[in-house]
Design a protein around this nucleic acid. Structure first.
Lengths: 201, 201
DNA sequence: CAGCTAACTGAACACTTGTTCAAATCAAAG
DNA sequence: CTTTGATTTGAACAAGTGTTCAGTTAGCTG
């Protein structure tokens, strides 16, 4: 017995990615076997190798795809010419919105870095750096409006704060993604002490 | 051949913990074998079972020990009667100082939660909750001094921001732990818009 | 120096791991 | 209806997994 009824390359390929994403996020890369992924897809382990050269590539492509899509989405969503305060708000809303819609990808992209072989690790790190640069640029472009001593430090603090949302947010919780974003916009503004926030006082 | 020269229970026990901590932090729980841990200690795999009932207990005890020590240290370091602003500053400095001295433990305590069996997971989650309550109490005790709409949200945002330091901090970097703490105290104060910060303006 | 026991070895257990590949099967084309 | 080619199976590979345990040894006690 071989070839299942109604099997197609265009179907199986993405399903492998989906299954791997789900299982890696739930149990971790090292704890998931190729056989488990295959079972989730409804196929034997050997069939995976028509689509993926090896397990490591499965993880790497998941992470690389995520980072590239994130950068593209950021380019599309953020307005380069925006005033500093609006740019910061835009970034916060984009970051939270985008990340809350892809918690599994975000999770493995932060958690499984150490499972990457050195060359792959470097690629992901570089992409992450490029994303962080977007926020750093906003902060340094607005250095007349904002009040931050250490731009790099503020960038890292903000990113950590924002990404932390994916760890506790639940669709069924009391807050909507928009509600969360509202609060985080406020906190982010305060952190950089945006003049626009202080004015109304 | 058995029993190595100069071997002692009081020596080997802690060395196993140290080796497990180091390897779990570096490669992840699932990716590290009992034989690797044994090799790091300089012993055969079987010898580990004189000290640990099974691999899972090794991880669990590492995490539980960390959380218990963290709570104890917090109790010792934080002054319950402090004014809100001083209490917040005290918490930030304590959190950063304590965590920067134990990056490996912090790392696995956040990363390997999913590797814990359900009952063990609950224990760690409860301990973590008790720690977060310390900060939440500070924020709600100071609700006249601070300006926070959602105390729980601010707690989670602050903890994420503070713990994030362990991900990028390097002993050899340009900033000292104290310098980092200074900046984070400032950012934390701004986030809750402590009146004491606004006064000098 | 003999005897004792805590401490450790080394081999074995039954599985699981990632990966390969000849053979089998199915869908579509001629 | 046959041929072709993509798709999948199922078995096999060598290596590694956590854990157990009879047997060996080092160092202390008397």
């Amino acid at each position: 017995m071989a070839r299942k009824t109604g099997s197609h390359s265009e179907i199986t390929g993405p399903r492998i990615q989906d299954a791997a994403l789900k299982l890696f996020a739930r149990h971790g890369y090292a704890a998931v076997s190729m056989r488990q992924i295959a079972a989730e897809v409804g196929v034997q382990a050997g069939a995976l190798y028509n689509y993926v050269p090896h397990k490591q590539a499965l993880l790497f492509e998941l992470m690389r795809g995520h980072m590239v899509a994130l950068l593209d989405a950021a380019d599309a969503a953020l307005e380069p010419a925006a005033r500093p305060d609006a740019a910061l708000e835009g970034f916060v809303r984009f970051h939270i919105g985008y990340h809350l819609g892809r918690v599994d990808l975000v999770f493995i992209s932060y958690m499984e870095l150490r499972a990457l072989e050195p060359e792959n690790f470097s690629v992901i790190e570089a992409l992450r750096g490029r994303y962080e640069d977007r926020l750093e640029a906003i902060l340094s472009d607005g250095k007349d409006v904002f009040d931050v001593k250490d731009t790099k430090l503020a960038t890292l603090a903000l990113i950590a704060m924002l990404t932390g949302v994916t760890n506790w947010f639940r669709e069924s919780g009391r807050l909507s993604p928009e509600g969360v974003a509202d609060s985080y916009v406020e906190m982010a503004r305060r952190m950089v002490r945006s003049k626009e926030v202080l004015k109304p006082r």
